[in-house]
């Protein structure tokens, strides 16, 4: 294939061009139909979570399953809220996810920049180490990690979840990949030649360029930290939970109440969904801008 081949000049061809796949083309009904189908598939499980959360246990047990909202939504949300300590959980999760996102972005950007553009000993080794870490199954580290956290006296405190999560090999790798291409080496060198210190280079050259990727990484880390449950369940207790930890204790009581459990799941997901709805354009734009260089 030779995409950059000579342009045909015959008038005849210009008159009847084959349809183009470029973005200029308007989507036909079929395109909309397929998109509608997939969108429905994406949204239905979430909508049904809300449907289930608005019913009661008995109704959830019958066939056919409920297809439309019932009247118990507020009541179930209320019991999920009080049973699972959801207020504190949401506050904690916001704090944890926010700190993880900020910290990850910060660490990853400077480390990614160094690994991408600066020459120093062990650079390759450190890069390989970082990439290697991505392969480590997270279930693996739990026991030694817990021993570390316990030694530091951090059990049941939020930093036991925040600090280990800051070590995002993916983040460093992601920023490095982005900066390798997005940050022209000449830009760094020019600033250097200007006599700028390394921190000034980071501040004034790297950060502006890295902004889109930083935004994506921040978003990704936030969502991931929000939804993480394996490690938090071990490090925290219901006394000081994150949302996912709170959910593991939900539905207790003499009898697990399915509708309340669904209401809890909904409560835990709602803030992110809300953010996605409000800032959807920015988030999507961010992912796309940050992803190109991936």
């Amino acid at each position: 294939m030779n995409p950059a081949g000579p342009r045909p000049t015959t008038a005849a061809r210009r008159v009847v061009p084959a349809p183009r796949a470029g973005r200029q083309l308007h989507g036909g009904p079929l395109v909309y139909a397929v998109l509608t189908l997939f969108t429905a598939g994406s949204l239905l499980p979430l909508v049904w979570t809300a449907v289930a959360a608005s019913r009661d246990n008995a109704r959830l047990a019958r066939t056919p399953p409920p297809l439309w909202f019932g009247g118990n939504l507020l009541e179930n949300l209320g019991s999920a809220w009080t049973d699972a300590n959801m207020g504190l959980a949401l506050f904690n999760t916001t704090l944890v996810a926010g700190m993880v996102a900020l910290g990850t972005v910060l660490f990853s950007t400077v480390a990614g920049f160094a690994l991408a553009k600066l020459r120093f000993r062990f650079r390759r080794a450190l890069l390989l180490l970082t990439v290697g870490t991505m392969m480590v199954p997270p279930q693996l580290s739990v026991v030694p990690l817990f021993l570390v956290v316990a030694r530091l006296g951090w059990t049941d405190q939020l930093q036991s979840v925040v600090l280990p999560t800051l070590v995002s090999a993916f983040g460093v790798f992601f920023m490095r990949q982005y900066l390798v291409e997005a940050l022209p080496t000449e830009l760094v060198e020019a600033a250097r030649v200007d006599g700028a210190s390394s921190w000034r280079v980071v501040w004034h050259v790297v950060l502006p360029v890295a902004r889109p990727a930083m935004a994506v990484l921040g978003m990704l880390s936030f969502v991931q930290a929000w939804n993480d449950f394996f490690w938090p369940v071990i490090a925290l207790t219901q006394e000081n939970p994150t949302v996912q930890v709170a959910l593991t204790g939900l539905g207790r009581g003499y009898v697990p109440d399915q509708a309340v459990v669904m209401a809890g799941a909904l409560l835990g997901t709602l803030p992110l969904l809300l953010a996605f709805t409000l800032f959807g354009r920015q988030i999507v734009g961010g992912i796309m801008r940050g992803a190109v260089k991936g």
Binding site: F38, T39, S42, L43, P45, L46, W48, T49, A52, V223, W226, N227, F229, Q244, L247, T248, V261, M262, A265, L266, G268, T269, L272, L273, A275, F276, T277, G280, R281, I283, V284, I287
Partner: peptide, 17 residues
Amino acid sequence: VALLTPYATSVAAATLV
């Protein structure tokens, strides 16, 4: 945005449904 929403759902919540 609609196609991205499942991504915002936690594994726990998604699997529950």
